[in-house]
Design a protein around this nucleic acid. Structure first.
Lengths: 250, 250
DNA sequence: CGTCCTATTGAAATTCTTCAACACTCGTGG
DNA sequence: CCACGAGTGTTGAAGAATTTCAATAGGACG
């Protein structure tokens, strides 16, 4: 994949992008993520301080309680944010998709554990670099602020889901979330879009405040009612009618 | 109350504060809220555009789905933020205490309903004024950003509570939250501090994803174990040992 | 082909909810 | 001053949803 990037200097077709770093060219964060507000020269400056990391599914990216020295943009994959109770009970408190910003600005240490749900690739940079760029570019803080507010809206939506919905409504909400937040495996959108399920049954349970067994039973029910159809050994799914699924979320 | 403010010009004891608006002098928002980063002259400018409102307990401050034209600082009292499902099920997704900022910057309409839990007094200003001040003072956006991140942290804590804790752990978490987030009725802090319970049983239930009956039973259990002691017809409480209560939160 | 890991299914147990009755507090008006 | 009524909180017993425990199934991979 990486090797398919041409070695020679890119043709200067678009004079505005002619100077953006090669590695940023295909990165979603540059289009929709926090990098989208940076100028080409700022991108070059930032790219001098970034490192790409890859994580296999189910490996830890950041452990709860550790000091924060760096942040990252998610380039590919899905990241689970979770909290752990002393006796081992676990709750996933958020999913993050490319090109989300991954990190907690202005904090000394993480309260959350971040794990790769799927294979994940991130573009990491030190907290110091981010702080410096924020000082130079107030728009960058605005961008981070907006993501924080969006995440807050989503967390509150999920509070409603966890606190007041039934198991079957929770499952419908989960598939609705995936269908509306992640990119389909195949090109087309609409009813024919096929989405990968980024989580195992246990993870879905930990996200919905249920047990893996209940998740399994409720998925069987969704399959039976035809609200969601499953493919590829139940690893991906299709939503024939998104409005009907939304209604099933209550 | 308001009349106790002296009519004559305040004595110029503190030259730095000599020009801050009278109404801001005793306001918590100026000390710990977003106004704390504003200069005296900015406070004067802002105060020209603010209006104080009072709300009785259990009255609506902002209805979900309405366009946002103004924001506010909470001067006194507790505000519940809630979400409603089509069939009437309700979830309280956050409590806000003085001197929190109340509002959703940069949004066209609210996703939440805000209701006065206790008697509430706010200092309100138009969204336009806030937008203008943000442009002039990047520090103000930083302040709002930090509150958003703090609320996000709290929402995620509560996701763990709703998703993974038992009814009795949820109740312990509730009293722990109040004891750590609201000011005691009496002066002293520590084990002798007496806190008002700002919510009715039904509200506590809606905050914890339980029913009022379960809340009532679990409160009885807390009283029995001595983790929390109740006064004044169960409208206020004391925490003899905060660490023990925290442990009961799991 | 066997092993490991994940998912599914069944039956019993548990927690929490639901429904119903009752108690308490507080303000109002007789 | 007491009675009444509305609103709020408590308690009990039955019911339902979800969990727990246990067994089985299905795939992926060496």
């Amino acid at each position: 994949m990486e090797n398919s990037v041409p070695k020679q200097r890119p043709a200067r077709v678009d004079i505005h992008n002619s100077s953006t770093p090669v590695l940023c060219l295909s990165c979603e964060a540059r289009h929709k993520g926090i990098c989208s507000i940076l100028s080409p020269s700022q991108l070059i400056e930032l790219s001098k301080h970034t490192t790409k990391f890859s994580y296999d599914a189910d490996t830890e990216i950041v452990a709860a309680g550790m000091p924060i020295s760096s942040h990252a943009n998610i380039m590919r994959g899905v990241v689970k944010l979770s909290k752990l109770l002393a006796d081992g009970r676990l709750q996933i408190v958020g999913l993050q998709f490319a090109p989300d910003f991954l990190g907690r600005p202005f904090a000394k240490e993480t309260l959350l554990t971040a794990e790769a749900a799927t294979d994940v690739k991130v573009c990491s940079f030190s907290a110091r670099v981010l702080d410096r760029m924020i000082e130079e570019t107030p728009q960058l803080e605005h961008r981070l602020h907006e993501q924080a507010l969006r995440e807050l809206d989503e967390a509150r939506d999920w509070l409603l889901t966890l606190g007041r919905k039934t198991a079957s409504e929770k499952l419908a909400s989960f598939f609705y979330l995936i269908a509306t937040h992640s990119d389909p495996e195949n090109a087309p959108s609409g009813p024919s879009a096929i989405f990968e399920i980024p989580l195992k049954r246990v993870d879905i349970a930990d996200f919905l405040g249920l047990t893996a067994e209940t998740v399994s039973r409720q998925i069987a029910k969704l399959r039976f009612t035809g609200l969601v159809t499953f493919h590829n050994n139940n690893r991906s799914f299709q939503v024939p009618d998104l409005q009907r699924l939304k209604a099933a979320c209550a």
